[in-house]
Design a binder for these strands. Structure first.
Length: 159
DNA sequence: TCGAAGATTCTA
DNA sequence: AGAATCTTCGAA
């Protein structure tokens, strides 16, 4: 299955009250302190997984939450995992895309810079416009415009 | 050891 | 608007 990333949010460490890493390293957020380019996957609200990619050098917490994808390939597999929704809504949210791609904690900490069960590649030059906004679903740190999404893409969450 | 909150989604 | 649903964290 393949999807184009169309919406992300940035999370940092001790200076970011919305981040899991705000209060230091714990069992759950340990991947955020590890090597860059690896997956940080956590379970929330008793229902959903969320997928992040670590960004900072080892020892410095930082990650990017993948909030939405545009389905590109393997649509049939995604439809099986998420029945009763339109194609546009298959991956239009952080919990939705993990379900549509079958992502769970077994993929935690995999290296997403190398080909493997889960990885990210550069699709080359694409023509699109980016926008920023406050992050979604948090109570603190809402003053930071660290949600970045592709303008006019119907697959971004909460239009 | 226990209680509260949560980087959400679906249904009424 | 509200429930579902369970893990994680921090305080007691």
């Amino acid at each position: 299955m393949v999807g184009k990333i169309v919406e992300v949010e940035a999370y940092k460490g001790s200076d970011d009250p919305a981040s899991h890493a705000f209060r230091g390293i714990t069992l759950r957020n340990r991947p955020m302190f590890g090597e860059p380019g690896h997956a940080y996957i956590y379970f929330t609200y008793g229902n959903h997984f969320c997928l992040n990619v670590t960004t900072e050098q080892s020892g410095t917490p930082g990650a990017v939450l993948i909030r939405a994808l545009e389905p590109v390939e393997g649509l049939n597999s995604m439809r099986k995992l998420r029945p009763n929704v339109s194609d546009l809504e298959l991956t239009s949210g952080p919990g939705k895309l993990t379900k549509a791609l079958g992502i769970d904690k077994s993929l935690n900490e995999v290296d997403m810079t190398k080909r493997g069960p889960l990885f990210i590649i550069d699709s080359g030059s694409e023509d699109f416009q980016m926008r920023c906004s406050p992050r979604v679903g948090i109570r603190r740190g809402t003053d930071r415009l660290w949600r970045v999404y592709v303008s006019d893409n119907p697959c971004v969450s909460r239009p």
